[in-house]
Structures are given as structure tokens and as C-alpha cells.
């Protein structure tokens, strides 16, 4: 891996921004260069949220994702909005609750039960972003699992360690592969 450009999209409040912050944190712990940013409307919940993280072995110039190597969409709206004009070879993960998957030529599309795993197997819908982080790292081999665990622990509220570690493990256990 020399440079990966990741874009995560969902509905405001699903935690896609925190998911990219955790991946960026893990990249820093792993000694890599990273640039994380986000865009969102003025509302705190609802609406669509987009967050990006670039992880690279070399210093990063432009800090925004131009040609995503990876896209994750957790809602139909966010997939409709960001699933366009993707470059050849882009890996796309869509939540299995999304009913209509548009044609994304040249992309490797993968359906994963992110939201239902959080809700049913972890037992807390709010952990979907941590499930996502586990699945993404397992799929893309961005950093060592140990670095990712450290990053998750540094960014979650005290008292939720056990729950979030379970979510992370459940994310990895989805055995995502392309």
C-alpha cells in the first residue's frame, strides 16, 4: 500500500466521521501519513454525511479524496449521491439494507451487513461505525490490528471499551474480501 483514498458516506449521526478519524489515528500510530476531512450540512443529525481519509507512505499534498480507492455507503441516499463517477478498480462496500444498487462500472461492489451486525450481534446500533472500521481494515489491510485497536480505544467514551472491542471483532469477523 503506498496511498489509499477512502470515502465513507452515510446519514448524519451514523458516525462515519468518527470512523475516518479512527482510521487516521491508526495510521498515525502505524507511522504513516494521513489526512482526514469531512463535509456535512448545518444539521447535526439526518442529511447525508461524507468523510474522507487518505493514508499514505509519503507526505500528502492535496488533502481531499480525488479518485477514491474505496467507498462505503451505509444508506441509499448516500450511495445515490456518492456512488457516481467512481474510478476503475474502486472497491465499494454497501450496507445490505440498501435496496437499489446503481450500476458502478469498473468497481468491485461488496454487500456487507454493517448496520444489522451492530444492531443484532453487538446489540447496539450506534456501534455500526466501529463494525465498519473493523471490516474496512480487514478488507484493505491498512494497518496492523493492534494499531487499530489502540486507535479505537483512544477515540471512544470511557466505559464503552468492551462494547466497542466486540463491535471491532464483529466487523473483522464479516471476513470481507474481494
Amino acid at each position: 500500500m503506498s496511498k489509499m483514498e477512502l470515502r465513507l458516506a452515510g446519514s448524519g449521526g451514523q458516525g462515519v466521521i468518527l470512523a475516518t478519524v479512527i482510521l487516521a489515528e491508526a495510521a498515525v500510530i502505524a507511522g504513516k501519513y494521513t489526512a482526514q476531512s469531512q463535509s456535512y450540512g448545518p444539521e447535526a443529525r439526518g442529511g447525508s454525511a461524507k468523510a474522507e481519509v487518505i493514508i499514505s507512505d509519503d507526505p500528502i499534498g492535496f488533502t481531499k479524496v480525488q479518485k477514491p480507492s474505496f467507498l462505503m455507503a451505509l444508506t441509499q441516499d448516500s450511495l445515490n449521491k456518492y456512488g457516481k463517477n467512481l474510478p476503475e478498480g474502486c472497491i465499494v462496500v454497501v450496507d445490505d439494507s440498501i435496496e437499489h444498487i446503481p450500476d458502478m462500472p469498473g468497481c468491485k461492489v461488496l454487500t456487507l451487513p454493517i448496520l444489522s451486525t451492530a444492531r443484532e450481534k453487538v446489540g447496539r446500533a450506534q456501534t455500526a461505525n466501529i463494525v465498519a472500521v473493523g471490516a474496512i481494515n480487514d478488507l484493505l489491510h491498512l494497518v496492523d490490528h493492534e494499531h487499530l485497536r489502540e486507535a479505537v480505544l483512544s477515540r471512544i467514551p470511557k466505559g464503552t471499551e468492551e462494547l466497542n472491542m466486540k463491535a471491532l471483532e464483529m466487523g473483522m469477523a464479516l471476513n470481507a474480501s474481494v
Binding site: 478519524v21 487516521a24 495510521a27 498515525v28 504513516k32 501519513y33 494521513t34 489526512a35 482526514q36 476531512s37 469531512q38 500528502i60 488533502t63
Partner: peptide, 9 residues
Amino acid sequence: EIVGHLREG
């Protein structure tokens, strides 16, 4: 906003 909201190591 570009730098204010950017996270880097």
C-alpha cells in the same frame, strides 16, 4: 476551513 477542519499527524 480546509486546514481548520483537517486532521493530520
